[in-house]
């Protein structure tokens, strides 16, 4: 007998998929939000394709942020990179004060309209939580454990791979999870610069004064963010169980 929470998640997933595949079935629900006989369901593109493009952008950007942020986190916690630690810390803090819209808008004249500026903005925004968590994960390894690893004759590389990274893994994964979920929401802004994604539905609603579109875009994105959060939680537990058994 699955737990109620699991059932709720499955129901949410079923709802999301049903809406994406046969949106017209939900039309009566959205009719009250339209005026002057406007279409109740987004009809200017395929919803499943937009959702896939949206997820693709988010995953691609978060993957690159994860690689860069974890790499940087490892670098500045090694003896050779210690000089870069105070600066990278401060930069991460300052980086958070840049609104994503500003990053997006500045990237457009440099790289043109479309997916690329969105990828850049999401990449920059996703860096911060992952880097911060990698840092605290690596720095919170008990010194006794690190010393024991040294005492066993491990090389710095072995120590990192076999001791420090596994110990820091829960925090690092939590950072990736946070980035991923925040990016699902932020990616909607990308549609203001013509990136493919669910933001298109919302923007179309704003432009044509059609609240039904805005609701659809918002609800689908929100549902995706929640489901992704839960999914990442499960993946995290799986990975952690696997590494601890090994």
């Amino acid at each position: 007998m699955p737990r109620p929470a699991t059932l709720l998640r499955l129901a949410a997933l079923a709802l999301l998929l049903a809406f994406l595949i046969v949106p017209q079935r939900f039309a009566p629900l959205f009719v009250p939000f339209t005026e002057y006989g406007a279409p109740p369901i987004y009809d200017q593109g395929s919803l499943p394709m937009l959702a896939l493009a949206h997820l693709g952008t988010v995953f691609a950007a978060t993957a690159v942020s994860a690689i860069v942020a974890i790499g940087l986190g490892i670098l500045v916690t090694r003896a050779g990179g210690a000089e870069f630690l105070p600066l990278s810390r401060t930069l991460v803090n300052i980086g958070q004060t840049f609104p994503p819209v500003a990053v997006l808008a500045i990237a457009v004249p440099l790289v043109g309209f479309g997916e690329l500026p969105t990828l850049i903005a999401l990449f920059a925004y996703g860096l911060l939580p992952i880097f911060e968590n990698t840092l605290s994960g690596l720095q919170s390894c008990p010194p006794a454990v690190v010393e024991a690893a040294d005492g066993m004759g491990m090389s710095p590389r072995q120590r990192l791979l076999a001791v420090e990274l596994p110990l820091a893994m829960p925090l690092i994964l939590e950072g990736v999870r946070l980035s991923l979920v925040v990016n699902v929401g932020t990616a909607t802004i990308g549609s203001t610069v013509a990136a493919k994604g669910l933001g298109e539905v919302i923007i179309a609603g704003l432009l044509s004064n059609n609240t039904a579109f805005i609701l659809q875009g918002g609800l689908v994105t929100g549902l995706m963010a929640i489901l992704l959060y839960e999914l990442m939680g499960t993946v995290e537990r799986r990975i952690l169980r696997a590494t601890h058994l090994a």
Binding site: F33, V181, V184, G185, T186, T188, I189, T192, G199, I202, I203, G205, L206, T211, I214, L215, G217, G218, L219, T221, G222, A225, I226, Y229
Partner: peptide
């Protein structure tokens, strides 16, 4: 927490109603 998952442009738009 649920409120936070709604993208900002959508929440702005939804509240217009």
């Amino acid at each position: 927490n649920l409120v936070q998952t709604i993208p900002s442009i959508a929440l702005f738009g939804i509240l217009m109603v």
